[in-house]
Amino acid sequence: MDPKPLIFAQSLVLSGPARDLGRNFIKGIDLYLKKVNDQGGIDGRPIMIWRLDDGYEPENAYNNTSQFVSYSQLLGLFGYIGTPTTKASLPLAKAAEIDIISPFTGASVLRGENNAYTIHHRASYADEAKRIVDYLVNDGFVRIAIGYQNDSYGKDVLNSLIEELADPHMLSPVISVPLVRNSRDTGNAAKEIKAHNPDALIAISTYQTVASLIQNLNSQGSYPQVMTISFTGTKSLIKELPRHTSFGIGVTQVVPFPWDLRNPIVRDYQHDLRHVDSDAEFDFVSLEGYLIARKLVSALRKASPVINRSSLRDALLEENDGLISGGVEVDLVFLGTDPWQP
């Protein structure tokens, strides 16, 4: 008789404009889980993930989650991608008393006492907002524009940015412009931003929308210092832009530097990835997937041999020394300044 698998479910973006986020994320997750399963899994039990594509749309994520929670053997909802999708799914998870584990989001709306069924392993968007604002103001940028995705993700980061600008810096954005999720239609937003002559732009969306906004601004003769956060997708953003356009964009990061071989976890990640694909590219998103898979496996080993939703939850909370960042909560990298870039 085959050992009973340990089953998780994941709603994530695998199609549409933000698809690279999902594809790179599961590359890291599957890399680590395959290694563990090849070595016998958890006391002989393989770890399996049931996945459905949501296209980074909340309604799809809700429908996917509705299917997931009806399965009685499900141990958890793992590695959901995005704030609007995770937020839409949370009421179903709460009703079924199933945890959403390690979602790829730093939104404040999904944290705190009112969200007992989410277990986080990444820094918050508020932490990333502080890192960006502090850098800009300390370097003399005070005319700061914000382009934000017009949903729970963008508004969450927008609120954090406004709060950080106000206190302690006593500033406010020169303009805040909404951007449509999953869209390259940013021409009008670029015109509005250019009209306010910012010296810096904080762009909050996914890589294709951010790239479109930057290119539209540049085509109109506006070249502000651009900053964005980890969820954008660093490597995908680089690939969306001409090299000269991407140069100097600042991106916050919440995982270790994927090319830093001084870090033992990064060495493991690179070794495992090159073992299955000698030509594979390293990136921040797949490393995050790899790291949350490690967290999950460690918790499963602690919970074994009696693994159920409750014992896994207890083990995850013990394991939750918080972050997957390797000691530095939020880092800041600038594109075009390092040899790792294509």
Results as ranks from 00 to 15, higher is better:
9 A>D: 03
11 S>E: 14
11 S>M: 09
13 V>Y: 13
13 V>M: 10
14 L>S: 15
15 S>E: 13
18 A>Y: 05
25 F>A: 04
28 G>M: 11
30 D>H: 08
31 L>Y: 11
31 L>F: 06
37 N>V: 04
38 D>M: 01
41 G>F: 03
44 G>K: 01
45 R>P: 06
46 P>A: 06
46 P>S: 01
51 R>E: 11
51 R>N: 15
52 L>S: 11
55 G>E: 07
56 Y>M: 02
56 Y>Q: 05
57 E>N: 05
57 E>A: 03
66 S>I: 02
66 S>K: 15
69 V>K: 00
72 S>C: 01
77 L>I: 13
83 T>G: 00
83 T>A: 02
85 T>Q: 04
87 K>D: 07
88 A>C: 02
89 S>K: 00
95 A>F: 03
99 D>C: 12
99 D>K: 11
102 S>P: 10
102 S>E: 09
104 F>Y: 11
118 T>G: 04
118 T>F: 08
120 H>G: 11
123 A>G: 13
123 A>Y: 10
128 E>M: 04
129 A>D: 10
136 L>D: 10
140 G>D: 15
142 V>T: 15
145 A>S: 04
147 G>H: 09
148 Y>M: 11
149 Q>H: 15
152 S>M: 08
152 S>G: 07
157 V>R: 05
160 S>L: 08
165 L>W: 00
166 A>K: 10
168 P>H: 05
179 L>D: 00
181 R>C: 11
183 S>D: 07
184 R>D: 13
186 T>S: 14
188 N>E: 15
196 H>K: 15
199 D>W: 02
199 D>T: 14
202 I>Y: 04
205 S>E: 08
207 Y>I: 09
211 A>H: 08
213 L>E: 03
215 Q>T: 12
216 N>W: 04
216 N>D: 12
217 L>P: 04
218 N>I: 05
219 S>Y: 08
220 Q>I: 14
223 Y>G: 03
224 P>D: 00
226 V>G: 02
227 M>K: 00
227 M>S: 11
229 I>M: 03
231 F>V: 14
232 T>Q: 03
233 G>K: 00
241 L>F: 06
246 S>T: 10
250 G>V: 01
252 T>G: 01
254 V>F: 12
255 V>E: 02
255 V>A: 01
260 D>K: 08
262 R>V: 04
263 N>T: 05
263 N>H: 06
263 N>W: 03
267 R>H: 02
269 Y>F: 05
270 Q>H: 09
274 R>S: 12
274 R>K: 12
274 R>F: 11
275 H>T: 08
276 V>K: 01
278 S>D: 14
280 A>P: 03
280 A>W: 01
280 A>R: 02
286 S>D: 01
287 L>C: 01
294 R>K: 11
294 R>I: 08
297 V>Q: 05
297 V>M: 12
299 A>T: 06
302 K>T: 13
303 A>I: 06
305 P>A: 06
310 S>H: 12
311 S>F: 00
322 G>S: 13
324 I>V: 14
325 S>Q: 10
325 S>D: 15
325 S>C: 07
330 V>R: 01
330 V>N: 08
334 F>I: 03
335 L>E: 09
336 G>W: 03
